[in-house]
């Protein structure tokens, strides 16, 4: 329809203004959001996957009781036999090299996955929001300094930094998390800065300034609520991607030590068993397939959830 005049009948919902509002409009919006979310089957699948993983992480001690209470992330192993053994009553998913229990690894690995995903993305997000807001809103010298620093971090090669840090700090999930924070925050900062630059030009920001609202309040009340959604969506997708990257680093031997309940580490341990002996190529399918499949499922879940979140929260997609 006509785009000059924004008095557009399609954008305004039909409202009976004489009716008093029966419930808080924020609740109405929330209900609308939920309804919008439910309408999309893919988002339900994503949500279910993530919910199942969450439950597994929460109830890990019941699903797979640890042998050593103080160090539950250590996968128990039945003897030292080299070759993996197939699924059995004792080991529902079979065992890996040195008889590490795959089932136990998967269950407690869920906790590791959430730990990696959440800590990396959350810290990146916090750094990104703070630095991005300053750079985007104030501009000028702040912007210049912050953006040049992000440029510097962009220039660091991922693997080299990862290896250097592992050498400095020792093997382990902590090192992986730190590497991904150091190299991840510039992306968020840039994204938030870009979003804020477009929002900053809106008239309602000027109106707030003209009515004497302080800068901090303008950022918190006007700018972030209107710009942070797109970043949150990317962040939710990145949780999956982060776990994937961590798994890749583990696979390269930069992650947790042998026997630690971490999916990437498990795949890495099974490197030698991907292909079986000449007469039975697929004899050890379970050692790689099960952890690999779980990683893929985890990433898929977050991606579907992120996609659904975009449909729901993005003002352009929301009412389509």
């Amino acid at each position: 329809m006509n785009s000059v005049n924004n008095e557009n009948s399609t954008s305004a919902i039909n409202v009976d203004y004489e009716q008093p509002v029966s419930q808080h409009p924020a609740l109405t919006e929330a209900i609308f959001t939920v309804k919008r979310f439910i309408k999309n089957p893919l988002s339900i699948i994503g949500l279910t996957i993530i919910l199942v993983f969450t439950l597994i992480a929460i109830f890990a001690p019941f699903l797979a009781p640890p042998e050593n209470e103080r160090d539950p992330y250590r996968i128990p192993h039945d003897g030292w036999t080299i070759s993996p053994s197939p699924p059995s009553a004792d080991h529902p998913f079979g065992t890996m090299e040195q008889q590490y229990d795959i089932f136990y690894g998967i269950i407690w690995g869920t906790r590791s996955a959430f730990k990696i995903g959440f800590s990396v993305v959350l810290i990146n997000l916090i750094i990104g929001v703070i630095l991005g807001s300053i750079a985007g809103y104030y501009g000028g010298l702040f912007d210049e300094i912050i953006m040049r620093i992000t440029d510097m971090f962009y220039a660091l090669p991922f693997l080299v930094v990862a290896m250097a840090l592992v050498v400095a700090l020792g093997r382990g999930l902590q090192s992986i998390i730190i590497v991904m924070i150091i190299l991840g925050w510039p992306t968020y900062t840039r994204m938030i800065r870009g979003d804020i630059l477009t929002i900053r030009e809106k008239d309602y920001i000027l109106a707030a300034r003209a009515s004497g609202t302080s800068d901090l309040k303008i950022i918190i009340r006007h700018i972030l609520p209107n710009s942070v959604y797109s970043v949150l969506i990317v962040a939710s997708m990145n949780i999956g991607a982060t776990v994937l990257t961590a798994a890749a680093l583990s696979f390269l031997g930069l992650g947790a030590e042998t026997g630690y309940a971490d999916w990437g580490q498990m795949v890495s341990m099974c490197r030698n068993w991907i292909v079986g002996p000449p007469d039975a190529r697929l004899a050890y399918w379970y050692v790689v397939f099960i952890p690999g499949f779980v990683i893929a499922l985890f990433v898929l879940g977050w991606n579907l959830l992120g996609d659904a979140a975009r449909d729901v929260f993005d003002p352009k997609m929301r009412r389509k």
Partner: peptide, 8 residues
């Protein structure tokens, strides 16, 4: 006026 359907 806008939305009256002239463009449509």
């Amino acid at each position: 006026e806008s939305g009256c359907g002239k463009s449509v």
